[in-house]
Amino acid sequence: MRHTLAVLVENHPGVLSRVAGLFARRGYNIESLVVGETEDKTVSRITLVVEGDEKVIEQVSKQLNKQVDVIKVNDITNEETVERQLLLLKVAADPPVRQEIMQIVEIFRCRIVDIGRRSLIIEATGDEEKIQAIIKSLQPFGIQELVRTGKVAMVRGQK
């Protein structure tokens, strides 16, 4: 099963390589990893998506917690969360199909951020499902380039 871990770490150089190295040498599979500063500049938050059964995830959490630079590990898989990924996609857009693409962009509420003579760059944010749906809808027009971030997530309400 896929798990989402929110890991608070010291905002030091070298921390990311320590965490990534840990996954590599213990044989855990990272599906995505996003890291960035938090509201506290001395703390970074790593959002990890990891594939594994309960036993693997327990080990992953324990090994992460054991790292001196790791402040807190939260498994937010079963929490109510808001999740977002960012997608930038360059799609072939000759005049005859441009209108159709723009309609798709409208439906998915994404944005056109660059217009070339024969292509468009589309920016989209959303959860995994939405991002997949956008990619699928634009595939027939010819995707020339695609780049996306991993997932970031935040637990809703309460705190």
Binding site: K55, E58, Q59, K62, Q63, N65, K66
Partner: peptide, 8 residues
């Protein structure tokens, strides 16, 4: 003393 050893 090391929680990561338990159940490993």
């Amino acid at each position: 003393i090391d929680p990561a050893e338990i159940g490993k």
